[in-house]
Design a protein around this nucleic acid. Structure first.
Ligand code: FES
Ligand code: FES
Lengths: 147, 147
DNA sequence: AAAATAAAGGATATTTTTGTCCTTAATTAT
DNA sequence: ATAATTAAGGACAAAAATATCCTTTATTTT
């Protein structure tokens, strides 16, 4: 569904949301290890998510690292897709027509549009925080994570 | 959602299903033009779909071309994905975990699995023929198509 | 001030996907 | 038989996605 870059972005952001706070930042080493992604490539992705007051916050130097502000935690998951320039896939035609519309629908449109709507709703209504909490429910975390 | 190759495969197969028969085959030129895809690349894809008694039938030489047997018409759309080796995307974890399962679910799993099931059902239960007919309903075809 | 730490950023490499072109093989028409 | 037509297949090219490495910048600790 999504590119590897976007998958890493989602996993990393959720991990950071779970394990970090402004007082307890995470290093790229730990993050990449935890989400099972290539370190340097993940660093690039976090740069994207960090750029111009983005979703993730970062601080350089000793004690620095990545964290999510409580404001950022409340943002919808779709914002991550947007930064990764892949939110388009949610609205795209399954058959790859230039435009998915009622005016010029492909033969799968009628059956697919409901699913598409659910996908959009899911990513729009789910916040990063909700996913972080769900993840914690699945694998309870002790909210440590110093590196 | 799918690669360009798979999108072309879907569009081409549906087009062939609509416009061809064993007595009225279609050339690659017409197909590529009709579905708005690069000709040579589409030819490769049709080769894949044609290989070892696949979904599409083909005949070389004058009067030759591509067509779909009535048996092939009844196959589920998912078979196209399978040949293109992309049926995996339907079962994949949205966050890219190695395995999507109840045993080791990602934080989106609970919300996503319903959508996933619908997607699988859609591609499993929809036949090529059904899509071809739907397409004909949208843009009525006079079932010509000699090239 | 100097050293250490950690992210930011640039350059480059590798792999995959997408795309083109040309030759070969099969089939039909002349 | 020869020529014409059309898909099959191989080789290659271009672009995009994925990945690594090294240098620079900001920040903190000594
Ligand atoms: S037009 Fe194809 S999904 Fe809407
Ligand atoms: S485990 Fe991620 S969608 Fe099922």
């Amino acid at each position: 569904m999504f590119s590897k870059a976007t998958e890493y972005a989602l996993r990393a952001t959720i991990y950071i949301a779970r394990k970090s706070s402004e007082e307890n930042k995470l290093g790229i080493e730990e993050i990449a290890k935890a989400i099972n992604s290539p370190k340097s490539f993940t660093a690039k992705i976090l740069q994207k998510l960090t750029a111009n007051n983005g979703i993730i916050s970062s601080v350089r130097g000793p004690g620095g690292g990545f964290y999510l502000s409580s404001k950022a935690q409340k943002r919808p998951v779709r914002d991550i897709l947007h930064v990764m320039e892949e939110d388009g896939v949610l609205g795209k035609c399954v058959l790859g027509l230039k435009k998915c519309s009622e005016a010029m629908p492909c033969p799968m449109h009628a059956e697919y549009k409901g699913i598409k709507q659910q996908l959009i709703q899911l990513f729009e209504h789910t916040t990063i925080q909700q996913l972080a909490r769900d993840a914690d429910k699945i694998i309870p975390s002790n909210k440590q994570g110093r590196h």
